[in-house]
Design a binder for these strands. Sequence first.
DNA 1: TATGAATGAGTATTCATTCAT
DNA 2: CATGAATGAATACTCATTCAT
Lengths: 211, 211, 211, 211
Amino acid sequence: MSSAPAFKRLPRAVREQQMLDAAVKVFSRRGFHHASMDEIAEYAGISKPMVYAYLGTKEELFVACLHREGTRMMQAIAGAAAPDLPADVRLWRGLRAFFGFVGAHRDGWAVLYRQARGEQPFAGELATMRTRLVEVVAEMLDHALRAEGHEVGAVDLEVVAYALVGATESLADWLADRPEADPEKTATRMMNVAWLGAAQLLHGVTWRPPE
Amino acid sequence: MSSAPAFKRLPRAVREQQMLDAAVKVFSRRGFHHASMDEIAEYAGISKPMVYAYLGTKEELFVACLHREGTRMMQAIAGAAAPDLPADVRLWRGLRAFFGFVGAHRDGWAVLYRQARGEQPFAGELATMRTRLVEVVAEMLDHALRAEGHEVGAVDLEVVAYALVGATESLADWLADRPEADPEKTATRMMNVAWLGAAQLLHGVTWRPPE
Amino acid sequence: MSSAPAFKRLPRAVREQQMLDAAVKVFSRRGFHHASMDEIAEYAGISKPMVYAYLGTKEELFVACLHREGTRMMQAIAGAAAPDLPADVRLWRGLRAFFGFVGAHRDGWAVLYRQARGEQPFAGELATMRTRLVEVVAEMLDHALRAEGHEVGAVDLEVVAYALVGATESLADWLADRPEADPEKTATRMMNVAWLGAAQLLHGVTWRPPE
Amino acid sequence: MSSAPAFKRLPRAVREQQMLDAAVKVFSRRGFHHASMDEIAEYAGISKPMVYAYLGTKEELFVACLHREGTRMMQAIAGAAAPDLPADVRLWRGLRAFFGFVGAHRDGWAVLYRQARGEQPFAGELATMRTRLVEVVAEMLDHALRAEGHEVGAVDLEVVAYALVGATESLADWLADRPEADPEKTATRMMNVAWLGAAQLLHGVTWRPPE
DNA sequence: TATGAATGAGTATTCATTCAT
DNA sequence: CATGAATGAATACTCATTCAT
């Protein structure tokens, strides 16, 4: 008698998470534009006005999804790569955590992120997220380079970090599209590309355009 | 009566190019979904039914744009990287051509491509395009590796090529967003990342996950 | 065979008038907010997108109605009150034309106007229309006053004109709500109030329509 | 524990007045349709269900506002124009009180009234209010006419009263829209129009407020 | 009494797409 | 070949109103 159907009149915080869960699912499946607020609400087992009341417009909802998933991912990475480890170990653990996360949430961050890149309204949120990633990577590289006695311009560092992040994103896509692929192996491959390249840079080896 | 204005009744091929020009502009500016067929037709100075008659539905039109721009880009690269050159030179020339192209057409391929990545309907076309790129890169690497006496699994090669392509795409975005940036310098940076990494691989150096 | 159903594929100008007719009817019946674009379109025998294509948003449509009806009314008045007549004759003819118009279009201008007064978005259009009326009246009064050697401040004139216009509007409402009432008689009564004033009436002075 | 904040659990009558205050403010600012019950409740510092419990639906709430403000206005007028004074003095005092009231509550009665005129659901309430005004005016005129030995038909009287009320409403709007305007002056102008009529004004006759 | 949670129903607006001429 | 006219279908968003606690 006292345990009435537990899914009615839930507190706001709970409902918000349910809605975000549903939204992530639907946005992932359909894409931002083909996802309808109706479907999201229905999927969340709630009526549309609640979604608007709690999470705002469709764009805001998408940003909220992106934000939550992005934060989770960053936490996964941060939890894996302690800042007092050597750069290569940090990079490896970070990559492993990243690909592990992407592999474990194949309809989460990677898909939303991919979609957001095509839409101007999300440029701001995206820039923020990518900047956080790039900063982490750049800081890692910078750290290592200084330890070896090298100095690199900020722009150079940023660009290299961008390249690494891009490569990683690309492999994340590759992984997200291949359910049978192994995240750990993918991370290893990425590490090969990233680190063997970076290691050279660390030792002062630089490629120059011919002539 | 008989001397009608010279810009009417153009041959079909010319008209199509005009439409594609308009479509590329509008898709770039607004994004796929926010671009309206009305605007595209108006921008092309033609009526909407003509667009449909010549180039089909909106999706087909977008694919046509993507295709044309992609082909142009591939040609620019192919024209720069002759297959009989050494791998590093080919890679460098290819990258330089690529970034030069992206820099010169800042509202062309890179933007369309970025948008297409978020939309499922274009997955096929995209896969085709990326595959062509990946194949070129993979073939380049394979060539070089065999010359050095190494053998690499197909999947590994594909993944590394993916990573390189992803890194390159990422820097293309970086470049497309920064009008003041120099394509050639960006190409050099990318080459540093790609080649110094790849070169190690060529020499059989491989990174292994610890323990 | 050649006289196909005449109400298809009509030229724009015709359709626009049909739409305006329908919109005036529906807005009058339901009021601005309770009128739905659906109903207007259906009433006009056309699909909704056409309404948007030709007349714009709901607000713009309402303004267009207001404008058309207002212009018609002003023309009716202007056609009746030639500027070279004495002020009282002009006033009388103007009033008669006005009430005649309102009486003849009981779901037209007066109703729309009444509705518009309550909604802020129409303040601009309303001000314009009322200003035109007030100007006509004020000019008439000023004309007459100067002829008598008097001079009155602009504000005073404006206020008096406002009062007259207000009184007239009020009677227009009164008339619009009473199908059985006689416009001409109403005009006469208004003329009495406006021209003679209550005090005169109290003393048994009464204005009579000429001949 | 027992000394709860003193502004909770107020007696019903007080709460109702608070709500009405809030509602009048919001309705005035936004207009009937654009005002939301949410905003009203928030503005009143109370939850929505309370508003419904105390004052009923949105329409009923609006009517209640209209009613309260109208009653206040009528009291202001009635308090100023004692029935044993001569007609012109009563009219003058009534007008002065009316414009004074409108000027002092620029977001009260006049605005609500203006809005109500456009909406059919309020026709009844409006008619009642206007009728009360018209009756007062008509009675005043009738009184005076009989004193002078004249007799006028009921309809004529009603129409004249309507015209006067309409003129007054119009000037009330004029005043409500012009924060810098002086209510007393406006009343004087109205009195001139009402009492003397345009013809008198043309001949230089002017009414002056007594004393 | 008082409220946070919840919703049904309605509506403006847009857009790809197709006839009829 | 070329176009103005026309529409079906979809969708974001709002709001008055009511339960369950």
